[in-house]
Nucleic acid binder design. Structure first.
Lengths: 266, 266
DNA sequence: GAGTGGTCTAGACCACGTT
DNA sequence: ACGTGGTCTAGACCACTCA
């Protein structure tokens, strides 16, 4: 599809992605009351931009034009546009303009513009401690924890429940040097993160988590009350101290029949 | 831990979460050059707030004090604070103040303050079409697609590759009434989303995805070149039209040995 | 009533990309 | 040279919370 103007002399701009698109032309706007203007404008733009009337890549009016259209100052317009950009609905380029974004549903990599959450029953407070011992880490675990000479680790296995039903089994490894006597504390009722902060003065600031599908082992199945071989999530988590060292390395098995991950893409 | 002041008369404020904390007191700041101030301030605050020197729930200085501390106007401070709030590092409450947020790693529900992505090799362009037929949807599928009287659906099975290796098998169902003659188009080389847009004038604006662990069936295993019973991700996706109708219902099986999901929590 | 964050304005200067 | 979005200022008024 290549459009030309009436005279047939000027070909419409051909976009990089092969689709040609006109500019975004907005409907008249009536301002409501009580609701902040930047929110009204954001909602109004979301409605119009997702109406399907404009092709992806279509150029939005410049900020100055939007100020006039909506009858507000530049700061207010920018607040609404920043929200749109954060949602991934538009892209903004200094010196060029703002453009409607093409949804990238087909791509392999889902960017950070998606919403994410776990769906399932909330965890009960507390945990059932299966065991908690201090031992020498094997080389693989020592490397995962970033340990040097002292390879002593506290190994902690906890079973957690939701509505009285066991749903996840967490196996944690913590550097014993950082948390001497950890096993003596009340790991059943207190959150691990609270004990580390209140008893050892350690604040955990960041964590990374890797999620994979797995087959439930016989031991895990017995603990979780499901069948051996049932599909489960295997979740590996590293939690970091402010200085970058690893405070906890955890591998958890979570029931796949109770929890699922949900993404919202735009 | 309950602290009292020297006189013993005034108990320090007891926070809801049971931990008591002093206010955030900031180190002197030297402004750099070239980098926008709101970014410098944001980075400076992240460093200080995650240093572990302050308890969770600690109150930040009010905006006016921060303006003076950093030597900038209120708008600039608010830009930095908005970023912190978006990251989930602080909570802001009108009339009360801004507070350092406790990391909620132990909780079951991971909020939207987390980063998320899929890790693995990028998908090759194009797809291998296993089959594409139009038939009547069974009641379950008809309900999932939100179909009324006309239960005709286009069923499309595609195999996608990464580096020449089959990695995901996608089974799609689309309302035949919306996309007549869909099977005649080149589904091997063109993205489905492009065909729907260019040939049918339909823009897909939103999608929701549910991710579960699963066991690979014999058929899927043969297609993907893995063993029957291997752990895989099962991904259910609904893609929506601007008016809220479902444009595509898809169930995909993705190799668990090639891809994993990654979360970054703060 | 004093202090907090939320909203909004009307200006200004800049780096950047296009013409 | 011009128009774009990015940054920043100095004011203003508001709703809300807490003493």
């Amino acid at each position: 599809m290549l459009k030309t103007d009436a005279s047939g002399l000027v070909a419409e701009t051909q976009r990089l992605d092969g689709s040609d698109t006109g500019p975004v032309v907005l409907e008249p706007f009536v301002r409501g009351d009580r609701v902040p203007m930047h929110i009204q404008i954001h909602e109004n733009l979301v409605l119009q931009l997702t109406s399907g009337k404009f092709g992806s890549g279509a150029e939005l009016p410049p900020e100055a034009a939007l100020c006039e259209h909506y009858g507000v100052s530049r700061g207010t317009i920018r607040q609404a546009l920043a929200e749109l950009a954060r949602d991934g609905l538009i892209e903004r380029h200094p010196g060029r303009g703002s453009f409607l974004r093409r949804p990238k549903f087909e791509g392999s990599v889902v960017g950070s513009y998606s919403q994410f959450r776990v769906e399932g029953p909330p965890l009960d407070p507390g945990a059932h401690v299966l065991d908690c011992v201090t031992r020498k880490a094997d080389p693989v675990l020592a490397k995962a924890l970033g340990l040097g000479h002292d390879r002593s680790v506290v190994m902690l296995r906890r079973l957690r429940f939701a509505g009285g039903v066991p749903v996840t089994l967490q196996t944690s490894a913590l550097p014993a040097a950082l948390f001497p006597g950890l096993a003596k504390h009340n790991l059943t009722e207190r959150h691990l993160v609270d004990i580390l902060r209140d008893e050892y003065g350690v604040t955990l600031v960041r964590a990374e988590e890797f999620i994979e599908p797995a087959i439930c082992t016989a031991f895990d199945a017995r603990q979780l009350g499901i069948k051996t071989g049932a599909p489960v999530f295997q979740i590996e988590r590293r939690t970091f101290l402010p200085d970058g060292r690893i405070g906890e390395f955890r591998r958890a098995v979570m029931r796949g029949d109770v929890y699922r991950y949900r993404l919202d893409l735009r």
